[in-house]
Design a protein around this nucleic acid. Structure first.
Lengths: 145, 145
DNA sequence: AAGAATTAGTCAGTGCACTGAGCATTTTCC
DNA sequence: GGAAAATGCTCAGTGCACTGACTAATTCTT
């Protein structure tokens, strides 16, 4: 059996896309805070005082990964994590003042970065790309959601 | 500053896409061999006897990561790695018989999996998605290639 | 031919991401 | 009210992916 053309494999392309993105992120947004960490900060701006499970649904990461990412943000004092007094299983999360400040700064940078990242495509193509990826990801997550 | 809609962020979508893919891969293709490992096997079918650097260009992974992935394939005896007698810096890689056999088996499975993964899109949309991702990834890799 | 520069690979360190097992705390059901 | 089920989190283990520092081998330059 002959070799396959990996450029027709969405998984391979997705990995390349993500990799290219994280490289550009490091150059244009932050070397300290990663894209998943930003996703967590952003979710906490939108919904303060949520627990880790709810957070994990919001940013589409599993509980273990969330625990790791949050631990790093806590270590940097960007997020506070306290046991919920009403339910001893939950950790309640909230942004620190520093975390909120950093989020504000990164929002403008990510906006700029996204423009550069998608610059090879025209407006319509950009919109199409985001929509199509969203549909495939939604459907696949549905399969074992 | 208000929170941002992560669904307009290509990096976040790319991560979700890749994650969803690797989940489906585990279910439909193999729990033993990962998608990057398959990419390496596939590259060695196409170009036998290449060294790790050349391989890393083919599958778009950096040298450290390639070394890890190849080490796992060597451990499973799917790939052989020997020092190039003509150039003592290089490792020459080749598939074992078992590696070639496994590659054949996985090619049919990945084809089936890709169909399922992209099923939410019609033919045109599938082709568009792959083309657009490819263009963005190519351009971004170009920036610091 | 000797020293400098380049090239291939390895290694340590960090971070993302999953699974599966286990622990503690609710909640549910009798 | 107490056993069983469900829920939230943690921990160990594996794999991908990068950077930066290092080693060894080859090639280039003079």
């Amino acid at each position: 059996m002959a070799a396959v053309d990996l450029n027709t494999h969405p998984g391979h392309l997705a990995r390349r896309l993500q990799q290219a993105h994280s490289l550009l992120w490091g150059a244009m947004v932050s070397e300290e805070i990663t894209s998943p960490q930003f996703a967590v900060l952003n979710a906490l701006v939108e919904k303060p005082d949520i627990d880790q499970r709810t957070l994990s649904e919001h940013v589409h990461l599993d509980r273990s990964t969330i625990a790791d990412v949050v631990a790093r943000l806590v270590r940097r004092e960007l997020v506070e994590r306290v046991r919920d007094p009403h339910d001893g299983r939950r950790n309640v999360l909230k942004l620190s003042a520093e975390g909120a400040r950093l989020h504000r700064k990164l929002v403008t940078r990510t906006t700029r970065m996204n423009r550069v990242f998608l610059a090879p495509l025209d407006e319509d193509e950009q919109e199409t790309l985001l929509r199509l990826i969203g549909r495939v990801a939604d459907a696949a997550e549905e399969l074992r959601g």
